[in-house]
Design a binder for these strands. Structure first.
Length: 257
DNA sequence: GACGATGTTGGCAC
DNA sequence: GGTGCCAACATCGT
């Protein structure tokens, strides 16, 4: 579910509810989502004020009056500002006004009082010059796009969609991309992510924002999830292969190595 | 019921 | 340094 556009949408919908609020108490129930001592984490959060909510890559960062709470949604994490705790609710924050719930069936997400790990630049901020410099690596372009130390925020959906939009084969060598193709990819990433944010992200199965609203960018997908369906540009069936252990969708005619 | 795949990431071996 | 394989977990489709 949650790649940069989804996380950005969650941040935008949750920020008005959290900014300036105080955490009265917190409760954590998953040893996977919150490794370590859960009650001491809860104790350290009690009484803290939320000063700012922002996104860094796929991480949600709550800046507190003391420290910062970092949240990664993993594959199926949801941050919700309303509703009742359910079977997969693994964190409950009681605020001075309202509540914040963290739901995550697969429990691949993480919540910690720790800074986010070292990440590459933001894809919507990096200059073409810096982007091209970072491409000078001996790796397949799709694998590089998924690498969060290369760029922070792209995941499987937006890597495939960006490569489709740029007409670049997922197995193409990053270092060997021409200047023109690198520029096309840089632009494609910006356009795809911007449009996805404008549509509230992609809801493939169960992604929703902090207010429970689905996104709509999935109706604009041209590669991801379209195996066997005709390419919107040339009609050739979209193919699916495995790259870096991830399902990878592309048009064999429009996307050249 | 079994099996494989799913939006993520990290560790390991080579 | 890059890649393949496996791991965590729950759910869903075949």
């Amino acid at each position: 579910m949650p790649e940069l556009p989804e996380v950005e949408t969650v941040v935008r919908t949750v920020a008005p509810y959290l900014t300036g609020r105080r955490i009265v108490s917190a409760r954590f129930t998953s040893r996977f989502v919150t490794p370590g001592n859960r009650s001491s984490l809860a104790a350290r959060l009690a009484g803290r004020a939320v000063q700012r909510v922002h996104r860094r890559g796929k991480f949600i960062v709550l800046t507190l009056d003391q420290g910062a709470l970092t949240i990664h949604l993993g594959m199926t994490g949801k941050l919700l500002v309303s509703g009742d705790p359910g079977k997969h609710t693994h964190a409950i924050f009681t605020l001075d006004h309202g509540v914040l719930l963290y739901d995550d069936p697969r429990q691949f997400g993480r919540i910690a009082l720790a800074p986010e790990p070292p990440l590459g630049p933001e894809p919507l901020e990096i200059s073409l010059e810096d982007f091209r410099a970072r491409l000078r690596r001996k790796a397949r372009i799709k694998a590089l796009l998924l690498n969060q130390k290369f760029l922070a925020g792209l995941g499987n959906i937006y890597a495939d969609e960006s490569l489709f939009a740029a007409g670049i084969h997922p197995l193409a060598s990053a270092a060997k991309l021409s200047a023109a193709r690198a520029a096309r990819l840089h632009q494609a990433i910006r356009e795809i992510l911007s449009e996805a944010i404008a549509l509230g992200g992609s809801s493939i199965s169960d992604y929703v924002d902090a207010q429970g609203q689905r996104g709509w960018f999935q109706v604009r997908h041209r590669a991801y999830g379209r195996e066997g369906q005709p390419c919107v540009s040339c009609g050739t069936p979209i193919r699916k292969i495995l790259v870096a252990q991830r399902g990878t969708h592309f048009c064999p005619k429009c996307q050249k190595r």
